[in-house]
């Protein structure tokens, strides 16, 4: 099957965010809204385990939600007292996020294009990188996200835990640990582990890396 071009993928996601319900649009489209709610909660608790259970309003943690879609994770993590930036390439999704507000700051940008003078305690990208179909853009995005993590900070990536790549449909290319580990090791990130979502038959899980150099 021929994969979508960058322009087609961008159009696809913008239309999907306009047409689909809140969680289904950025979640798993094969599930209904209620199931997607469960799926989002499962991943949120996994993020909490990695971000930690401490907060402070005076000196908060700074998080980047890369590929925030309609902003579910950004808003929920902002409720915990963290300062969250949400970035996404979809104009419709960012407009929706800004309309809902809730604390995070949203910016329309690609993952490879986000520039800021501030580093983050945690950068997370949940089920987004496998929607970047072009390998070179995937690598640019992954490198850019890693560069935004401060020393001791974490990079959390949602993708599958096997070796090798696998194509699903015409808009998903999952990439395995043989891609992530060497690339991020070269970026000064230590691999801490991969944990599957254990949600229905999802093959995806969270990689966690810590910046050590």
């Amino acid at each position: 099957m021929t994969l979508l071009t960058d322009a087609e993928a961008s159009k696809y996601w913008n239309e999907r965010h306009q047409q689909e319900t809140d969680l289904r649009s950025g979640g798993d489209i094969s599930f209904d809204e209620a199931t997607n709610y469960m799926f989002y909660l499962r991943r949120l608790t996994m993020l909490m385990d990695r971000v930690g259970l401490q907060n402070n309003p005076v000196a908060p943690l700074y998080l980047l939600d890369a590929g925030c879609g309609k902003g579910y994770f950004s808003r929920e993590l902002a409720k915990f007292g963290h300062q969250v930036d949400g970035i996404d390439g979809s104009e419709a999704a960012i407009a929706h996020c800004r309309e809902l507000g809730g604390g995070p700051r949203y910016h329309r940008t690609t993952l490879s294009g986000w520039r800021t003078p501030w580093l983050y305690d945690v950068v997370f990208t949940v089920d987004v990188l496998f929607h970047i179909l072009d390998d070179a853009e995937w690598e640019r995005s992954t490198r850019n996200l890693a560069s935004l993590v401060r020393l001791g900070g974490k990079l959390i990536v949602g993708d599958w835990g096997e070796d090798g790549d696998h194509v699903y449909g015409n808009y998903q290319v999952v990439r395995g640990r043989d891609r992530y580990l060497p690339l991020l090791d070269a970026c000064g990130m230590r691999f801490d582990g991969w944990e599957p979502y254990r949600f229905r038959r999802s093959p995806i899980g969270l990689y966690t890396f810590t910046r050590i150099g």
Binding site: L61, L151, G152, G188, I212, G213
Partner: peptide, 29 residues
């Protein structure tokens, strides 16, 4: 070993000391 903001893990003084790459990163930051 270096600790992160809001870390709630007990201190571990015997852990691995930051290496040169970590120190380069630290001074750069």
């Amino acid at each position: 070993p270096l600790r992160t903001h809001l870390s709630d893990a007990p201190l571990d003084l015997a852990g691995e000391a930051p290496d040169l790459r970590a120190l380069l990163r630290l001074t750069g930051e």
